[in-house]
Design a protein around this nucleic acid. Structure first.
Lengths: 146, 146
DNA sequence: ACTCCAATGTTGGTGTCACCAACACTAGCC
DNA sequence: GGCTAGTGTTGGTGACACCAACATTGGAGT
């Protein structure tokens, strides 16, 4: 294989960005087999954990732009994983709810992701995985409060 | 701020992907000010470290698709950071070389990236940064041999 | 009560990065 | 000499993140 410039390999920003590429491919492959993509998982997860929500809420919880939530929820509705109904108490707002099929799909995607974590962290011991997760969490937390 | 589903926050794959988003934004902001983007830096770095190369070589070293190298090198030529000349020994092949302006631009981008590393890892101590870098490197190495 | 501001859903863009298929051409192997 | 592998190039695709604008609605302030 060709050598990678040291300027890249020594920079955490490169390691994270490059690793994210591989993560995305692993996740993409797994989700594609289930006819889904990343945005779907995030939205189903938020609905399962916090209950029915408006699209704007989903966007804030899942770190997805309002406009992208529209499309993703639309796809989930098509597949029958989610219902989108107008909020009775609130003229403009929608109310998105998880269906039984949606919950099943979420469980399926959970299994896919568990497999991905194992593939991804394969070279690390249990303690190292814990350390990595903790450090990443701290760094991310510092940048999340947007 | 809105709460993020636990299903996401506990998964290394989410942490990496999400952190990569912030990395990309930091890098993008810094590079945009210099009129550049990520692919430019990778290519300039490879030329500086390994000397003149063909576009296919650059692609392999920088993990960039052949077809994307064409566009990126074209942009670098426009800006005068790189020369693209036919390889005399090899009919079809190009020979891409770094110019003095290109080397200057690389140094400029290096400074930007140093700043990004600091911003990024701000919450971690020096040892923790080292640990994180080492763990990321090991995980990435396992997935690199593509 | 009225005004004004914030929030919501939606459309229609943009940019980066990664990747693929196809084509024309060249070099080098057998 | 013919086939195979490598090269440059064009022209797509997809996911993700993001922005601007618009119409509409709710609610806060005065």
């Amino acid at each position: 294989m060709d050598e990678i410039p040291e300027r890249l390999t020594t920079k955490p920003s490169w390691l994270i960005a490059q690793l994210a590429v591989h993560v995305r491919r692993l996740v993409f492959d797994g989700f594609t087999a289930a006819g889904a993509r990343g945005y779907h998982y995030r939205i189903l997860a938020a609905l399962q954990e916090f209950g029915p929500a408006s699209q704007a809420e989903l966007g804030r919880r899942c770190r997805i732009d309002r406009s992208d939530v529209v499309a993703a929820v639309g796809e989930l509705v098509e597949r029958g994983f989610v219902d989108r109904t107008p909020d009775p108490d609130h003229g403009r707002r929608n109310r998105v709810t998880l269906t039984a099929d949606g919950a099943r799909q979420l469980r399926r995607m959970d299994r896919v992701l568990d497999q991905v974590q194992d593939d991804l962290l394969e070279p690390l011991s249990a303690e190292e995985r814990e350390t990595l997760t903790r450090l990443l969490g701290r760094v991310l937390a510092r940048h999340e409060p947007r």
